[in-house]
Design a protein around this nucleic acid. Sequence first.
DNA 1: CTGAAAGCGCTAACAT
DNA 2: ATGTTAGCGCTTTCAG
Lengths: 378, 378
Amino acid sequence: MDKRLHNHTTALPLRTTIQMIASELKLTPATVSRALNNHPRISAETKQLVNETAERLQYKRNRIALSLRTGKSHTIGVILPSISMNFFGSIVHGIELLASEYGYHTLIYQSEETTDLEIKAIEAFMGARVDGILASLAKGTTDFSHYVDLQKKHIPLVLFDRSNDSLHIPSVVIDDRKGGYLATKHLIDQGYRAIAHLAGPGHFQTFRNRLEGYKDALRESELPFSSDYVFTGDLSIASGRDAADYFLGLHQPPDAVFAVEDFSALGLVKRCKERGIQIPEEMGIIGFANEGFDEHITPTLSSMDQQTVQMGREAFKMLLTLIENRKADHHPELPKIILDPVPVFRESSTRMKTNLSTAPNHPTRTKAVTDQTNIHSI
Amino acid sequence: MDKRLHNHTTALPLRTTIQMIASELKLTPATVSRALNNHPRISAETKQLVNETAERLQYKRNRIALSLRTGKSHTIGVILPSISMNFFGSIVHGIELLASEYGYHTLIYQSEETTDLEIKAIEAFMGARVDGILASLAKGTTDFSHYVDLQKKHIPLVLFDRSNDSLHIPSVVIDDRKGGYLATKHLIDQGYRAIAHLAGPGHFQTFRNRLEGYKDALRESELPFSSDYVFTGDLSIASGRDAADYFLGLHQPPDAVFAVEDFSALGLVKRCKERGIQIPEEMGIIGFANEGFDEHITPTLSSMDQQTVQMGREAFKMLLTLIENRKADHHPELPKIILDPVPVFRESSTRMKTNLSTAPNHPTRTKAVTDQTNIHSI
DNA sequence: CTGAAAGCGCTAACAT
DNA sequence: ATGTTAGCGCTTTCAG
């Protein structure tokens, strides 16, 4: 009562509470609360009055008190390998778009591809009493017990992009097998016949599925599959370089490579250029992810767009459903959404001029096709 | 008392509270709290006991209750234009590194370069009762009243990278003038004599300073300054293309351009290549920011590294100081940290072979030099 | 239609 | 060294 009665008319250092606006209007906090929440049994004039003074006093509902009272933090936690991978940054964007629309806050932690930081993130989220968690597995993670523990505690959890079917955790992924198939099929259509695959770590469903898609396409076109044509990398530029050296050192080097993601593909491109191999003439290359640099390098890199923004949206939607149905824990079926990848063919894989865009100077990223993607629930 | 007495030994759906571990040990919540916080006047054995059962019951301190009680949310808000700009992603990383070390959570909002979303972010932060805010100005922002309001309310606020001196808000920036000077000086050293500048929006101190640095270097070498050689863009690839067309259309086209940041520079590079201009032979180009794509395009793009991770760290440190000294509001002086940018010379500006790296195949990003940067407080 | 009272989980005086 | 009490700001029975 003694400290700050002098209103300098500019300074307003006390954050205004429901109490304040109640006493200002000679009402009860309860009434003010109800008015603010548009409770049916509150007179229109009271609501009017309350809202006006709330506005005037710049009242902002204290989410902390709200959370303590209701037991819902209206905050979700997001774990992703690295925010500086354009791909994940874009998914985050999709998540946040919907989240803020639904009044949710988003806590983001980067695992930097390590299990250790995943665990730290989860602990932070538990302390923050997040209502649910979205996660994309770190590539260093092989022991998933920290995620299984979340399931046991009935914390809503949805995996996106990098998932693992054996975990039986709800997930939003793209159809990697189809993506692998489409990418490989494209190379075949472009006249390549000795097509290799630069694969990713085998403990990811994601990368195994892309490999399967690759095989599907070969089989369909009756091209032989050879394990010599599969090099397993670790999703880095360096391993792309290594793969290039390996493939070019073979007795019968391939004339095209489908790389499991764009950084590997970039390594391939760089090493091929260094060794004087012409792309796409002597070597066709296609990646996966549609990273930001794809359209800026020379030659521009073909890739498979993973519908990142939509993936983020779908992941949040699924999580929200889990959060809302938490009490009714009758697991009806394992929710799983599979998005279709969208091919983005650029120079690195296009040696048939007829297929080139008519305006090669301005290769635009495929973004508008979002609505065409199929969503099938399993 | 009726709902969940059946422990399925696996499921543990009730989040354990201080109360629970108190009754388990026949102690008071207060004592448990003290023990957990390592209060001096608590017996060692009690602490031991409490910590053990806390561990066993997987107790996690409820930050929400803590925040309500103490009035400190231990959360900061971060506003940045776009998380998918590698540059900002990297700063966020620096912020989070220190923040999590100090037990702070980080709420991130993207302004997408609009004032509107900046305001939304601030409102969200006020609701979340963040202890302080870090922000980098959106390029669309010319009215800064929402930030000034924060100052009036004594909400700790630190601007990073994109600041504005006239606002008198604490900030962490790099020495843009020096950066502009070094970039231009480098072009001069490489033998370029007709050096143009692709500038950024004039309402940013940041970009005006880079322009000043450009002028400094010209003056030092007694090269004439001409406003014809300054093209003002909007930090986009498109404006880089426009600039290229403008410069090449001049009576006496420049033989080099210092671009205010890398996306503009990329546009320049692309358009020059399309028009058959040889880089770096006929046209030297250097950008600013050291974006991720710089070392992947052809030719690789010279740039000025902005010490992003360190900038993030410094910004958080400064904010923390403000938060801790909030009550003692004797503004001693306006805190301001100016980091030195680090030149990263690559192919796009290097036409004197002697200056080329000895291992051009593996151009590494300059990262280890962090410790050499000067920090001077004003 | 509004008021009174309790309580979410925690900490910090103020006891003892 | 530990217990008692009160309260952070809000919502929500239960009463009028």
